[in-house]
Amino acid sequence: MAATKNKSKVEKTIVLSIMLIGGILVSIPFIWMISSSFKPESEVLAIPPTIIPDNPTIENYINLFTNMNFAVYLRNTIIIVLFSFLGLLFNAMAGYGFAKYDFNGKEKLFYVVLATMMIPGQVTMIPVYLILNYMGLTNTMAGIILPGLAVAFSIFLFRQFMTTIPNDLLEAARLDGAGEFFIFFRLVMPIAKPIFAVQGILTFIAGWNSFLWPLIIANDESLYTLSVGLSLLQGQYANNYALQMAGAAFMVVPIIIIFAFFQKYIVEGFTMSGLK
């Protein structure tokens, strides 16, 4: 018995050390980003490089807001995130509709929704641009927001979860005279909290990171998102790596913090969706 315990202890140490080495390799880019973002411009190109800045400064972060319009980009990004939560609500409602109502052609319509997941983004990218152009929505916030609101995969996950809600519960509420929307908002949404948590985080991340579509649609700098702004910064200050790293950190750190708090829901969400 003692021998097996000893063996498993050795094994555990090996597993942990491999994990640690891999973890360090994976985090090098993040560590380097944070460290460089606090270096003055002269130190960032120094050879040999310093891991901990000799003269730490927050000047780079201040420059993001004084030299660049990061306040505007931040505002636009937050607007996009907020509207993407409206999209999340639409997806949840559709998932509920497909799960708990019967109507003609329901199955077929649901298959069509699933089929849209298989269309590569490159195929729809150009026509969506042409459609938005026809509607006069290029270079507007609406044009940036609208195409991303409905997500087939999200509808699918909501439907999967909501089919597990007992029908008796909904019937009982109806007998008590509750309206359909009252049932959805007051009864179904609280029950579906776990799936809302996962989808909420993923929606936030997607909205915060949105890049390609804002880049295609927005011509005015006043509509740029943080990622478009960061790519502008990369072009304008090609050699100022300290400033670039500060911009990158400004984008990445909020996501890391949010993820650190909610990571358990994401893992549970994948287990829930039955991808086994």
Partner: peptide
Amino acid sequence: FRAVYYMPSITNIIAVAVI
């Protein structure tokens, strides 16, 4: 460690390009 290994996949692509 799960969080550490997952982090790159939720990192913004432009930030990735910059870093």
